[in-house]
């Protein structure tokens, strides 16, 4: 498998990144080198191996659904690049 410039453009779109022409070319080369190296993993037969997503036997942690103190609105908005009426403000989504 090798990554083309077109693949890089597609993945960039999925990742919400706009790359310059120079970045696209550079990433195409570098990602190919990294993925070629990663193909090393195919030397191993893992048909009967369970995947590890976490080293600890973690399970979902549940708590009682009780009302707790929450962050005040103005504190939550402290780092907002733009806000209005106690809400985060973004460009219009609907026309």
């Amino acid at each position: 498998m090798s990554i083309t410039l077109k693949d890089v453009e597609h993945v960039a779109k999925l990742a919400r990144l706009t790359l310059t022409e120079q970045e696209k070319e550079q990433f195409t080369g570098q990602l190919n080198a990294i993925l070629k190296y990663a193909e090393k993993l195919n030397e191993l037969n893992t048909d009967d191996v369970e995947p590890t997503s976490h080293v600890l036997p973690v399970t979902n942690v549940m708590r009682d659904d009780v009302v707790r103190e929450s962050v005040p609105v103005e504190t939550a908005l402290k780092n907002a690049p733009d806000d209005e009426d106690g809400q985060f403000k973004v460009p219009a989504v609907l026309e």
């Binding site: 191996v49 995947p51 590890t52």
Partner: peptide, 15 residues
């Protein structure tokens, strides 16, 4: 499957 799942399986072998 080819990359992420494969890597998770190899992680098991490493552990």
């Amino acid at each position: 499957d080819a990359y992420y799942l494969k890597a998770q399986k190899v992680r098991t072998l490493i552990k």
